[in-house]
């Protein structure tokens, strides 16, 4: 038996969350005494596929098919389930990304599996019953859950486990699989990707700003700080509601939940709804001119003062540090 981990690629490249999933699969496979099969779907260069072996994928299975140039959740779920059946995998792991959320429940139905979405730790294994933790109530709590079916699908929250190098010789195999037309009912018309920006769900550092910035024209200093840190930019709900920044940047209870290593909140007071989406960040820095802003209560580091004065200074200090 083996553990199957599906690694999503973005235009032929794997992301950090994918390597985290391989490391996670390797640890679980170790507990089970099984091997890790890593599955890639779509056109990915051999050198990129070999990277999966660096993190311990005993075998890399690739599916390249002209019908599958772009992600269609029905078709991808069918292929992942086919590979799971043909390799006898009872544990299927993937990243809980935008695409992963559309895939995991479908795979679970096809394999009569139990699904744990948004897992944040290595499960405790007692025969067929596994105990695992996941974040609930928009990160206001953590739940411990028992998974009872023989087949398990686990969607791993990005940035919740470390990547670990565990090199094995790269062994790449091609898997052939037919698709039914019903699985290809969706037609992709257009993809727009800002390749010059760090994507928010995958970012290890996030620079986020709120109403304290007073207007969209003032975001240049936020972007400059993000650039020097290699960070993604984010914002609070009032900012995206006002149209100062796109909805895709909204983090919080009704926006995106993020858990980067470093979250820098600038001019955000820290309403409970905002904190819900960011409180699992490893380190939180708050810059706010109001010393009573609730955000300071959940921050690791804080500076009380005017963002327009402090943020450019911080950017310069980080530039100097990096040199």
């Amino acid at each position: 038996m083996s553990v199957l981990v599906y690694i999503e690629n973005i235009e032929g490249t794997f992301k950090k969350s994918g390597f985290e999933a391989v490391s996670y699969a390797k640890t679980i496979a170790g507990l089970l005494g099984e091997e890790v099969n890593a599955l890639s779907i779509g056109a990915v260069p051999p050198a990129e596929l070999e990277k999966l072996a660096q993190y311990g994928a005993d075998k890399v299975i690739k599916i390249e098919n002209d019908q599958l140039k772009q992600f269609i959740n029905q078709a991808y779920a069918q292929l992942i389930a086919n590979v799971a059946k043909s390799t006898g995998a009872k544990t299927i792991i993937l990243s809980n990304t935008f695409n992963g959320k559309g895939l995991a429940p479908r795979i679970a139905v096809k394999l009569d599996a139990v699904l744990c979405d948004g897992a944040i730790n290595i499960p405790a294994i007692a025969g067929d019953v596994w105990t695992i933790k996941k974040s609930v109530f928009s990160s206001k709590a953590i739940a411990t859950e028992e998974l009872k079916a023989a087949v398990k699908v686990i969607a791993l929250t990005p940035n919740s486990v470390e990547t670990k190098e565990a090199p094995v010789p790269a062994q790449i195999e091609t898997f052939q699989s037919e698709l039914l037309s019903n699985d290809l009912a969706t037609t992709i018309q257009e993809i727009v990707r800002a390749t010059d920006k760090v994507s928010l769900p995958d970012a290890t550092i996030v620079v986020s700003a709120g109403r304290g910035m007073k207007g969209p024209e003032n975001w240049r200093i936020i972007e400059e700080l993000a650039d020097v840190l290699g960070a993604a930019t984010a914002c609070s709900k009032p900012v995206s509601d006002a149209g100062w920044r796109p909805h895709a940047e909204h983090v919080g209870q009704t926006g995106l939940a993020v858990s980067p290593n470093l979250y820098i909140a600038i001019g955000i007071s820290g309403a409970i709804q905002h904190l819900a989406g960011v409180s699992s960040s490893k380190t939180i820095v708050v810059i706010n001119k109001d010393p009573d802003a609730p955000f300071f209560k959940v921050a690791d580091y804080g500076i009380v003062g005017d963002a327009f004065e402090i943020v450019p200074k911080l950017t310069e200090a980080i530039k100097a540090f990096k040199n």
């Binding site: 953590i142 804080g302 500076i303 402090i310």
Partner: peptide, 26 residues
């Protein structure tokens, strides 16, 4: 029923914030 939540916990609270003087960004 394939899964069951057996318990909840609140996230570990952070320590007190370390406030840094605005003139000491370094």
């Amino acid at each position: 029923q394939l899964s069951k939540i057996t318990s909840f916990e609140s996230p570990v609270p952070r320590g007190t914030v370390n406030l840094i003087d605005k003139e000491q960004v370094n």
